[in-house]
Amino acid sequence: MTGPQAAALQIARRALAQRAGPHTGAGAIAVAARRAYDDLIRVSAPLIGEVGLEALTGRALHLAQRSYPWLIPTPEPEQSQEAFAHFLTCLEKQEPAVAAEAAEAVFALVSGLFVTFIGDSLTAGILKKAWPDAFADASTGEK
């Protein structure tokens, strides 16, 4: 795993943890993932459009299937909004640890795709605005 991938995973982990709170079940992780995704839509949609984010998410879910074969694609992959809802349904059926790992991986893949297309700087700007709590934790951690 490269440095940027590890960093993206860590940011996703913090964002999900903040949104899950004290709850640790797979259902709570799915709810946290939904909230994190909504925050991402709110910030990134003005910049790249909701359709743009949904397309990247669809691609990230496809890539995640290599590590998590239980992420069965939806019948219509272009319906990425539904694809994410389907992903959440899949998450709820997993063991909490597996669900958490998969959710982190998907968000890390999404942010990796952001970097691929629009670069580090704009991606960092989006993530910091969408998940400020993840970065606040990071800066505290660094101290």
Binding site: L47, I48, G49, G52, L56, F117, I118, G119, S121, L122, G125, K129
Partner: peptide
Amino acid sequence: EPPIKMLRYQQQFSYFDLARVN
């Protein structure tokens, strides 16, 4: 032009100041 591509290509120009976006 999809915004994600527009942002990707426009960044290649020196006038595109990433710090000013948003």
